[in-house]
Design a protein around this nucleic acid. Sequence first.
DNA 1: GCAAATGATTTCGC
DNA 2: GCGAAATCATTTGC
Length: 378
Amino acid sequence: MTITDQSLDEAQAKKHALNCHRMKPALFSVLCEIKEKTGLSIRSSQEEEPVDPQLMRLDNMLLAEGVAGPEKGGGSAAAAAAAAASGGGVSPDNSIEHSDYRSKLAQIRHIYHSELEKYEQACNEFTTHVMNLLREQSRTRPVAPKEMERMVSIIHRKFSAIQMQLKQSTCEAVMILRSRFLDARRKRRNFSKQATEVLNEYFYSHLSNPYPSEEAKEELAKKCGITVSQVSNWFGNKRIRYKKNIGKFQEEANIYAVKTAVSVTQGGHSRTSSPTPPSSAGSGGSFNLSGSGDMFLGMPGLNGDSYSASQVRWSTSPQVESLRHSMGPGGYGDNLGGGQMYSPREMRANGGWQEAVTPSSVTSPTEGPGSVHSDTSN
DNA sequence: GCAAATGATTTCGC
DNA sequence: GCGAAATCATTTGC
């Protein structure tokens, strides 16, 4: 078919005639109705999807971190989390690190919002453009309002997918920032000498039962400028490490034993008044005079005992038992070279804790010095 | 730079 | 929920 100027003119004339036909609006609306009733209506109902749960999670997280939502002073929630994670904010450089964290978070927030704004702008521009196109097309073909809505929703969905990527990468950035700044492991600081001393004093003066009560922990925490959970951690680590290598801690134990003995003989209270464990009620608030019976004696043990393995009978774990046996006859006393620095008084003096204190486990004169004979259940 | 020390976390059993 | 044990990650001392 050849298209000539004449045929084009004819076509234009016919189109114009059709557009101007009095029946045109009515026919057009009928066409639109049919179109709407067929495929479009079905599709539009199918496209109504529930809110993406992942998107909700991302939104919630960004809100919680102070990245999304209203400005919270650079993420005060996160700063609070930082303070909690760092153990009560004892460290003097905490505030510096927190401000560093806040500024980094503010950067992320800024980038996130500017990118979000760009996306929204681009989305609006594109939507307007498509709407204009559709309006233009609606002159020549039936374009139902629903079709337009559908188009808009498709565009929005595409852009929200991009937004989700942005939110995802923002969340990742926040996570990295958190792990770098707030991870307590990374933030580990050794306790002060004084704090370690206070803890050690308590530990060695309660060697037969180094399990401070909640009140004792609180008081120790206050004294050391650390949190209660840090005190718990410290005692947990100490117990384990002490049991694993008693020989290594012998010297330390002796030092604290001497300290304790000196403070006792000098008339009373230890240099650092200490929390009173429940078992030592009425002891005058001192480790040394506690009724727990953990006091070290700066002299050879009673009955000629060296420091007995019974001192470390906190548990009946296989490892500990095997350790005890591996020490062989003479036990820990060997490390003292005969000069026993301290000897546990009667472990049962504190009312007996755990099943560990069995008659055979307590050093018996009949078993010889330093006997580590104990419950050989395993 | 390396090993030891040390505080924190994780896993598991009770 | 607590404690033991193992492990991780960092600090410290050489």
